[in-house]
Amino acid sequence: MSRRRQSRARRKEELVLLLFTVPALGLYIFFFVIPALQSVQYSVTDWNGYSPTFEYVGLRNFTRALTNDSLFTNALTNNLKFWLLVVVFQTLFALVLALLLFRNTRGSALLRGVFFFPTILSSVSVAYIWKFVYDPNFGIGNELLGQFGLSSAFLGNDRTAIYWVAVTQVWFHAGQMMTIFVAGLQSVPAEMVEAAAVDGANRWQTFWSVTWPMIAPSTTIVMAYTTIQSFKAFDIILGLAGNPPKRSMDILSTRIYTTFANFEYGYAAAQAILFVIVIVALNFAVRRLVSYSQPSA
């Protein structure tokens, strides 16, 4: 009898705890799930955003984006270039900083704070800071290059503009990714590192065989988050390039925004779905890449 009462009391307790999740779940469904499902619905229509009626056009919007819209394919190409640069250099830079500063000394803690500082700034502030750096007339970028007899048009050069935006993005978020690597490095057992040293492994061998496998989860998180950031760099792009940005700095998020602003809501919804598919595919590829890079046993 006592067991039955305990079982009933446990079920009641579990039910009460489950009920606490209902408000949050309701908000999530109302503000995220329903709009997402509506986007899927609108993506196969020609809705303009204000008309009470619309027609279903099937996959025409998706076909148009992928095969018959040079602005969308240009934005996708720019975004892939931007993503590749940021995910490679931001991850490497953050990892190097973490390897240098993961020990909890006073100097390391101070430097971690210095490198983390740009992350707490607003995106618009960062964009305007770097817009000043890149100014071809009085920016400090050309002042520094001038010391070596060089100069650059920076954002004015259509062939390299997106790469300079990537430099801004790396500066902005490398410190944030550093903290994730620091947490991963601090979780590596010191005994394993010492054992590798006793076995005669040098620093690189110790890193590759011991440290790198142990921080693989941190690396996956960093690269996944960096991928998402690279496709959501909307405010950085608008701050540096204006609204709407020129073709050389147009990425998917700004292209979708412009399409919505042109009252092509159905087409913009289709672009947004493709946007999500690209991010999911790249994150899957990044996860596989990290797993393949692990040394075999």
Rank of each mutant, 00 (worst) to 15 (best):
Q229F: 13
A297D: 01
S253Q: 06
L37D: 01
A196V: 04
V87D: 10
M214W: 02
V165D: 07
F148G: 00
M249S: 12
L238D: 10
V222M: 12
R64L: 07
L80A: 00
G49M: 03
A216R: 12
I236V: 12
I221Y: 14
P118H: 05
A241L: 09
Y128G: 09
S122D: 07
L37G: 03
A9I: 10
G58Y: 04
G26V: 02
F275D: 07
L71D: 14
Y265K: 01
I228S: 06
Q176M: 12
V44L: 13
V290Y: 11
M177S: 09
P52I: 10
A65H: 12
A269W: 02
M178P: 04
A224I: 15
T91H: 13
R106C: 01
T77D: 07
V86C: 10
L80C: 01
S123E: 11
L121F: 07
T45I: 04
D46H: 13
L19G: 05
N68G: 10
N137A: 14
T91D: 06
V188H: 02
I29F: 06
R10F: 13
N74H: 15
M1Y: 02
A297E: 03
L80I: 04
F93K: 07
A183Q: 09
W171C: 09
V193M: 05
A224G: 14
I129L: 13
W164P: 04
Q41P: 05
N157P: 05
G200M: 08
E14M: 15
L274E: 10
V165N: 07
K232D: 09
G107E: 15
A241K: 15
A268G: 10
A190F: 05
D235L: 15
F181Q: 00
V278F: 13
I228F: 08
A109D: 08
A98F: 02
Y225H: 07
E55S: 15
T220W: 06
A285C: 07
Y292D: 08
T91K: 06
T67F: 11
M223H: 11
G113A: 14
R3P: 05
N202H: 03
P295E: 00
F117T: 08
L155S: 13
A216L: 05
M178V: 02
W171V: 03
T21P: 00
S187K: 15
F207H: 00
E264I: 04
A233T: 01
N74S: 11
I180H: 03
Y134D: 01
S218T: 08
V33E: 09
N74Y: 10
L66A: 06
S187D: 12
S293Q: 09
A272I: 12
L59V: 09
R287N: 15
I228Q: 12
R203I: 01
D69Q: 05
S187L: 08
F263N: 10
A281C: 07
I34S: 08
W171M: 12
A174R: 04
E143G: 00
L155H: 08
N78G: 11
L145K: 00
T91I: 02
G149H: 10
T179L: 15
V133C: 05
F207P: 00
W204I: 08
R5L: 06
V198F: 01
I180Y: 02
V210T: 06
Q186Y: 01
L59K: 11
K12Y: 04
L19M: 08
L97M: 09
A98H: 02
K81F: 14
